[in-house]
Design a binder for these strands. Structure first.
Lengths: 194, 194
DNA sequence: GTCTATACGGCGATAGAC
DNA sequence: GTCTATCGCCGTATAGAC
């Protein structure tokens, strides 16, 4: 396999592992196993674990921004920002299906105190804010609401509430009122229970 | 010092350390140093690191619920739920001044996959939801909005954005529109920069 | 009630062969 | 391009003295 192909598959595996175990809890060995290579090879290719995480973070952010821009571009010109907000929220919920990608982002947010990761996470977060404000035309209030909803969704997925959707009526009620895309959540659920 | 006093001071130190470094990143040695005791003594007193974290989690949750109940009880009878929501949000922002306590909760939320911590975190989260719905009279929509705002605040603090309040105008704008208690945030900021 | 000493396992990173 | 072997550190937990 070529260098670039390997890079891609390792980064993909790393996103899943980092999302599931967190930055500190994830091991380069677990990433290696998930990607089907040896542990030293992962280190060799990315230098350090920290650097590997930074690349995962950057990738996740890129995908997020790209997706949002596509939704904005595909909306008819002159679409109301409020409507656009619902569309982007929906796209975000869909993106959340890829647990690793988004949970890695969330893990990055929790590492604000880290001297190398903190600045990258803050910059990424502000980049998203600027995108919805400048490119989607959200008011600061709308942008805040949008990001709040996103953080809530991230938390609900991280805490594992969707898995209790049909065993706990309170969890169900909460999810029904917070998930912009109920169908997607349920799809996740059934996948999780399988 | 008596056993109970020590317990309290170790738990307090543990909340700060867990909040700052995360569950995996925190070491029992760091907790011990922060509490001014030896590392084996911390383990001796709480059995395992996992158990120590569960106690910190329970304490944080208790303090949260107690605070919310006090706000509800102190509000004049028949206060509108919408008004109550603003009051509780304000109390939450104040509580967030104790970084360790609330960030420990947030760290717990990120550990939903852990077989021991996950269930405790989910139960705690739902307990908060039930409180604002049943005792404060929030509609499910309001409860969702309230929790979303809380998760957003947690994230903003965790990522360290308040520290950039007066160096980055975008960060400032974002914080101005998301923090229910601007004064508290600024107080935090100045403390952080000191 | 609190410590010192230490066993034990695990992880990131390096060296070097193929 | 990818592996095996391995070093060295660090963290949890135990044993046992005072």
């Amino acid at each position: 396999m070529s260098c670039e192909e390997r890079r891609g598959s390792i980064l993909e595996a790393a996103a899943a592992v980092f999302g599931e175990r967190g930055y500190v809890g994830a091991t380069t060995d677990a990433v290696a196993k998930a990607a089907g290579v040896s542990q030293p090879y992962v280190v060799r290719m990315f230098g350090t674990k920290e650097n590997l995480f930074l690349e995962v973070l950057g990738r996740s952010l890129d995908r997020l921004l790209t997706t949002f821009r596509r939704v904005i571009a595909e909306a008819p010109a002159g679409t109301d920002p409020v409507e656009l907000k619902a569309l982007i929220a929906l796209a975000y919920a869909d993106l959340l299906q890829d647990r690793g990608l988004l949970l890695s982002l969330m893990q990055g947010f929790m590492l604000g105190a880290d001297p190398a990761i903190g600045p990258a996470a803050r910059a990424g977060f502000l980049q998203v804010y600027r995108l919805v404000r400048d490119e989607a035309g959200f008011s600061p209030e709308m942008a805040g609401e949008f990001l709040s909803g996103g953080m809530m969704l991230n938390t609900l997925v991280a805490i594992g509430l969707p898995a209790e959707y049909d065993t706990d009526p309170v969890a169900r009620e909460l999810l029904d009122h917070c998930a912009p895309n109920k169908a997607a959540m349920i799809a996740r659920l059934s996948k999780e229970l399988a």
